[in-house]
């Protein structure tokens, strides 16, 4: 019986060649850097209508033009083509063959950044600071899911906005007001540095590292798509309105469009903990996905 069960199970296993992963990751690295998703471009256009600052309007129009040039000419929209952050949802019925999975992703990054003339922005040792020359190592987040597919999202992340991000372990007594204050303080402190208009990814709950990952994952959502929980969606709207009253504006030169969206993700937390993470994304909110 045991043997039979095993063989039935094995019939459901699907093999995926690591060479396909290399090619797909390489393609996604380039596409993400050349073609800004339509939802982001549309949010520039919507903001341009509501922006009252003349220079703010001009900048938003220039960002639309910049995105068009990048897509048409297949050049990066921003010279900072980022850390290659790679999210993988690996179906549990997939068997990867012909190579090592992490190495395949890193090889895809090497290939994509080399062939796409993307900037190599990684140092190998963070204190010695020598450029690795091929934009590796990629930062890989692996999640095992049901099914027989491999979903890969490449989200190149620039240093300027990443540097203005922050995480704080709040006391539960500080509650939602404490969380709101921390988000606002982080954006206020960032000012013009992270290339506004921004997309603000917020993680609330989990452990320290889980909270940071929630904030990063929040950046992958289509711009302005509300959270499925009504109270969280309401909090997103409230924070967006408050952030846009800070006056920072496009390129930090003053205006009403400091952020295009606030996306929050939540997770259960320890009875003693209320972690809050704020991952700031510049307007070049890049991510491309493939399902293999």
């Amino acid at each position: 019986m045991l043997t039979l069960a095993y063989s039935r199970r094995s019939l459901a296993i699907r093999t995926v060649d690591c060479n396909i992963i290399i090619d797909e990751v390489a393609r996604l690295c380039q596409e993400a850097n050349f073609k800004l998703e339509e939802d982001v471009v549309e949010s520039f256009k919507r903001s341009c209508e509501s922006e009252v600052s003349q220079s703010g309007k001009e900048i938003l129009n220039l960002l639309v033009e910049n995105a068009t040039i990048a897509a048409t000419e297949s050049i990066p929209m921003c010279q900072d083509t980022g850390v290659a952050v790679v999210f993988v949802e690996l179906g549990q019925d997939v068997q990867l063959v012909n190579g090592d999975f992490s190495e395949a992703i890193n090889e895809g990054v090497r290939k994509g950044y080399r062939e796409g003339y993307l900037r190599k922005s990684m140092v190998g040792h963070p204190l010695e600071r020598v450029n690795t020359g091929d934009n590796t190592p990629a930062v890989i987040h692996l999640k095992m899911v049901s099914g027989d597919k491999v979903k890969i999202t490449v989200a190149p992340k620039g240093g300027g906005s990443e540097n203005m991000s922050a995480l704080k372990m709040l006391k539960p007594a500080e509650g939602v007001e404490g969380a709101k204050k921390f988000v606002l303080d982080t954006v206020q402190n960032a000012g013009p540095n992270p290339c506004p208009p921004l997309i603000i990814g917020v993680g609330i709950g989990g452990t320290m590292e889980k909270c940071a990952l929630l904030a990063k994952e929040a950046l992958l959502r289509p711009v302005g798509q509300p959270h499925s929980l009504p109270d969280i969606a309401k909090l997103e709207q409230e924070l967006l309105a408050k952030i846009n009253r800070l006056g920072i504006g496009p390129a930090g030169l003053g205006g009403l469009t400091t952020a295009l969206a606030v996306h929050i993700e939540i997770f259960g937390a320890h009875i003693a903990s209320l972690p809050v993470a704020v991952n700031i994304n510049c307007h070049a909110a890049r991510h491309k996905t493939v399902v293999i």
Binding site: I69, M77, K120, G133, P192, A251
Partner: peptide
């Protein structure tokens, strides 16, 4: 200030480029 992130657009204003020091630093 130049407009952060408008890098494809800005590159059109650069008509010559050559490395004059520290080529080992890459970008």
């Amino acid at each position: 200030a130049a407009i952060g992130g408008a890098a494809a657009l800005i590159s059109r204003c650069i008509i010559e480029s050559e490395v004059v020091a520290y080529p080992d630093l890459g970008p």
